[in-house]
Write a protein that binds this DNA or RNA. Structure first.
Lengths: 345, 345
DNA sequence: AAGCGTGATAAAACTAGTTACAAGAGTCAA
DNA sequence: TTGACTCTTGTAACTAGTTTTATCACGCTT
């Protein structure tokens, strides 16, 4: 084997030269082997093996005009809800022969625009977004690229890109209504950062309480630790009869903190979450929550985006209806029980 | 604007024609604007805008020979530990101008090989793997592609691909030793499925107990629910003084189940995990565990793989030392306490 | 024996960019 | 005035594949 051959990746031409045929024949061996005589095919095959040839993705892409790549922009992977969504999205895309490139934005629209650029630069044929807050530069980018874009975790039929998700306001309202129906009048609302999260903002906006209901809001980190910390803070003031957590991770943390302070759930305080993480059915007590159909959202997004890319059908916005999941952490308030609360430790 | 122009994506040639310059000049406007006179540059820029031109990733890739794409093969995203790893990996790669394509394998080596093929087909320049169990077809693939490959979540300096991770046997041993040092002699070991998970197998193999120690193994789903279920099963038999969970999600589920049955931790049973998830510091009681430096693993993998791809330096295997994190769930066994266990509900 | 269809293969055009090289114009110093 | 130099731009080759068109040999008909 000569130096030239050993130097780097071999190409179609190298294989053609080696096996004494034209490049067209080698290409045929690769793409339509039955259209090449067996003798030639075998000769070419052995040259391919000897030269460790394998075709360049870029060269194929340039001809087909297809990269079969889809980009997803999510705030973070380090959150069970996005991870689950991406898991389902990846599965659905893979079934349709598409691969998933992920990029994290940390909820920052400018960063989203920058990462979108890099996704386009690497050849993404479509984009999956989270929420509906965009930087102007993002829209300009998509305007030029004329590329399929779907926004998820949000349902808004009037949004400029098709949305697949849920009405976050409604989701929050379902949870709040459940607590009100149970008889709660003073409710603490725990939520993650608002400034970089339009889903949280939309949930908050959905919480227009009736006149006789008092809500007080506690913003904290969107993590189990954040939920715990918020409850610790909350306990220094007047205790509400229920804590509505705008995310199950916060609720999980809240339950831990309440337990630490010896506050019985739901006897002394009710707790609700939103998301219905797989673990939420197993907390002690089991968490009453609102299920967001995140896997379905991933699957639906994969299907819709694949169809848009392949067939050019812009999908209709789609609302994955949330479901109230009644478990053990929410119960009617017991009159007077809040005044005699014990605070162990 | 003519039909031809409106029909589909415009190319460099279209822009050149429109602005009355050569393709080389347009290319220069894109890549080295200072080498083009201002007048020409502006003319070309406006043609670019009018035609909504933007360059094809594939065509660039074919020239540079670079796609700037890296593939990651993980069993699932629906597991906090892999999600955290990928989060850090994506961040590290993005800093170095690389994008991350993810593919899930469900722990199946054949599926891994198939997905690896699709990653290569879409142009990945390097691969990140989990564990050390490979299908033969995978090795054949990499052999041909001659592509940088790093195996993670595992440390084995003799493995055929460089590993960045931890010695799973050692990790498990650290946890076991801690329990033994506390005085436990009868220990239940909870772990996820063994057949598709070499990390779990390696952890199990690390658990060679001294003579006077009894271990009994419980295999279950790798989820909070799985941990709960295993403890429910375990309670029907003789109660050990400690439960060693080979993963924090199992430990979280175990704690929930123990609480449900009114078994005090650590007074009646000690519990240990492995991973140190962010939530593990907040469980009640706080989980004693072994920290796997997963973010560091992601960052180190990004750095090593980027260096391999760009500079051709094959990285040295790297062991991210695990750390024992002593919190509240593990304490010395209290003699006799196990016999008088109460099983509420 | 001429004509025709078919199968196998080669030649060349094509995809959409980058880049080496050449050429012309303008500036400046000797 | 001429040579050297820079600045700007165009021509054409190049990347690594796919695809269209053309050619040729072969066997079969008439």
């Amino acid at each position: 084997m000569s130096d030239r051959e050993a130097r780097k990746r071999s190409t179609l031409r190298d294989v053609a030269r080696r096996s004494g045929v034209s490049v067209a024949t080698v290409s045929r061996v690769l793409n339509a082997p039955m259209r090449v005589s067996q003798a030639t095919r075998e000769r070419v095959q052995s040259a391919i093996t000897e030269l460790r040839f394998f075709p360049s993705a870029a060269a194929r892409a340039i001809n087909s005009g297809r990269t079969r790549l889809v980009g997803a922009l999510v705030p973070t992977l380090d959150n069970a809800i996005f991870a689950r969504f991406l898991e389902a999205l990846e599965g659905g895309l893979a079934e349709r022969g598409l691969s998933l490139v992920v990029a994290t934005t940390n909820g920052d629209p400018e960063r989203e625009a920058a990462k979108a650029q890099s996704l386009i630069d690497c050849g993404a044929e479509g984009l999956v977004l989270s929420g509906v807050t965009r930087a102007a530069s993002f829209d300009a980018l998509v305007e030029r690229a004329q590329m399929p874009v779907i926004a998820t975790s949000y349902f808004d039929p009037d949004y400029r890109y098709p949305t697949i998700g849920y009405e976050n306001g409604t989701v929050a309202r379902i949870a709040l209504s459940h607590l009100i129906d149970l008889g709660h009048r003073e409710i603490a609302v725990l939520h993650g950062p608002v400034h970089n999260n339009d889903r949280t903002r939309a949930r908050l906006q959905g919480l227009e309480p009736p006149k006789n209901i008092t809500l007080c809001h506690w913003e904290t980190d969107l993590s189990v630790g954040g939920g715990s910390a918020a409850v610790n803070r909350l306990l220094s003031g007047r205790m509400p009869t229920a804590i509505l957590c705008l995310s199950d991770v916060l609720a999980t943390g809240a339950l831990y903190a309440l337990r630490r302070h010896g506050i019985a759930v739901p006897e002394q305080t009710s707790v609700m979450g939103i998301d219905d993480l797989p673990s939420s059915a197993f907390t002690r007590p089991a968490l009453t929550t609102v299920r967001l159909q995140v896997r379905e959202m991933g699957a639906a997004t994969a299907e819709a985006l694949a169809d848009w890319i392949e067939e050019g059908h812009r999908p209709e916005p789609r609302d994955l209806g949330p479901k109230l999941i009644v478990r053990e952490t929410a119960a009617p308030p017991v009159a007077g029980v809040n005044d005699g609360r014990k605070t162990r430790r």
